[in-house]
Design a protein around this nucleic acid. Sequence first.
DNA 1: TTGATTTATCGAAACGTTTTAATATATTTT
DNA 2: AAAATATATTAAAACGTTTCGATAAATCAA
Lengths: 345, 345
Amino acid sequence: MATTIKDIAKKAGVSISTVSLVLNRKGYVAPETKERISSVMKQMNYKPLHSARKLATQKTGNIGYIIWEGHFSEVEMFYSQIFLGMEYAARKSDSYILLTTVKEDFDPKNDLPRFLKYNDVDGVALAGRVSHALIEYLDNQQLPFVLIDYELPGKSFNCVKIDNYNGAFRAVENLVLADKKHIAFIGGTFFHPSIKERYRGYREALEKYNLANDGYLKKYSYCENIETSRAIGENGATKLLNRHPEIDAIFCCNDTTAMGVITGIQKIGKRIPQEIAVVGFDDIPPAEYNIPKLSTLRVPKLEIGKQAFMLLNELINNPNMVPQTRMISVDLVIRESSHSESNER
Amino acid sequence: MATTIKDIAKKAGVSISTVSLVLNRKGYVAPETKERISSVMKQMNYKPLHSARKLATQKTGNIGYIIWEGHFSEVEMFYSQIFLGMEYAARKSDSYILLTTVKEDFDPKNDLPRFLKYNDVDGVALAGRVSHALIEYLDNQQLPFVLIDYELPGKSFNCVKIDNYNGAFRAVENLVLADKKHIAFIGGTFFHPSIKERYRGYREALEKYNLANDGYLKKYSYCENIETSRAIGENGATKLLNRHPEIDAIFCCNDTTAMGVITGIQKIGKRIPQEIAVVGFDDIPPAEYNIPKLSTLRVPKLEIGKQAFMLLNELINNPNMVPQTRMISVDLVIRESSHSESNER
DNA sequence: TTGATTTATCGAAACGTTTTAATATATTTT
DNA sequence: AAAATATATTAAAACGTTTCGATAAATCAA
């Protein structure tokens, strides 16, 4: 059997309570006894038993990470990286992240993740687009939660957001400054607020340079109202370029779409970036290995995970906290798919 | 406060012990009382508190999933998919998978995952190539563990293996039957036993058709003694094809390498698959989106995760079990990168 | 009928912590 | 010097389960 708090108490010649006090850095305990107890603990390699501690404190020490099934099992390493960022942060506070996926048509009655059913988490992080029914459920249960890269219009929840607007704005401005005249947008469902914001950045950058006149936006935007994918990119590029051969740049709602766009352009036979520049968003790992290498906006995924963890922890310790939004900024990284010669930023 | 076993006992007019018995399907309890207790539990929406249960049973209900940092944070969705398979399986038995990464130069003294340090898991799964120091540590601690897609020569541990040999054999045989005469192998470090086995499958398939005479293997094999990557593939293809332009097929140790190989071939300007066929191994998601689509061996990752979970569970319940190896077979899936016209299998 | 076995239920101890309230001593304030 | 406060330690209760052994009733075997 492993050594318990009793063993420590006996060996150090004090009561259990005193040991517990030094363990939790609480109350008064004389420096010398504290020292003695600490050394005994180290010597006997004592580790408090979590389940006992949890039973006594009524906390679980776990936090849940919920992600839509499609996000985790598909090509994207995006949300997995955010998870990893949370895991790194969790190490420091000795808590665990329990990851689970939910289906798109989530029903709280039947599909409740087991850590919610059994109250095995102190709080949850919801990554990306996730069922509103689930958010509502958590809100009703008064369980602390944060949204990552998602939000609900009209509602103010705790969330960690990507600075989609400014990122998009900067990317498109950069294309304009590189003398591109007909800049298209290809994307997926606006149901995801991030994509909406990226589109807004696109539009307002064009407006700043008085490019977005009359039918410009309508002509050069292609969005399918479904989850983003390579297919959308390829379709979009094909249709848009056939209809409007003057297009000389495409800003995509994310890297996955952008890689599809590149495929589409290659099939048509135009050169990237000389004839058409392509810029994505997210900087998922494949972006760097794509041919040509994809210019994109680097989203610091590990940092997002860390911020989400910290915010959630604050919330757990202070449930009545006024809802916060943490905005994470992004970097434009220019690779081969835009700006052949100059490497300006 | 949530309802406890006490509340149930009181409402059902029985003792705590009896409730516990029906909860755990143990001992004798009259059908009618069992029925009554069950209905009260349902009615009051009773969920046993895990921490209390764990304290009493001295089990954690958790299992750890350890993976080398590079495997998780890189492009590959391979080991994350296996993780997902374990998570699916874990749902049924209400246990949790705690994922953590370890560094390559793992030192048990300093880098011990916290769930090992605090005994928060009943067992662990080690995915892919992982520090031998860690395996040794677990073995010494007598903590149940399984190796996934890895093994130690000479030692017999519980493991879930991919049928690398037969997969490779079949793939290469298929190339031979498609009339390819000069079939190369490109791979990474043989330190990973899977790669070694894949090479063996390659070699023996050639031997079966009497192709692997004199210097054939030496001439047409390219392996760098480092972790596999696109770079290895590209380098290998470039060097091999410059030296031996007669090469008409390349079998790669995995998809990542294969995608690099394709890049290399494209830069040289040969056509795939007409002039050179390429086959990978693993069927990671990008394989399907690659251009051309990559022929490969489909490894059922979710199934591997499930098998690992089940094996580990058996081991936990019966620690003295004789070490088992579960072999998971693979399917050859032909896409565009080999066999242009016929779709034979 | 008696004794043995099976069926059914329960009381109480155990699991390893935290925390509250009590006690005792030392120090400061009046 | 008494009262108030700060410092130091502890006993005991509490957290919600499981499980062991006891007890009692019902069934079976002789």
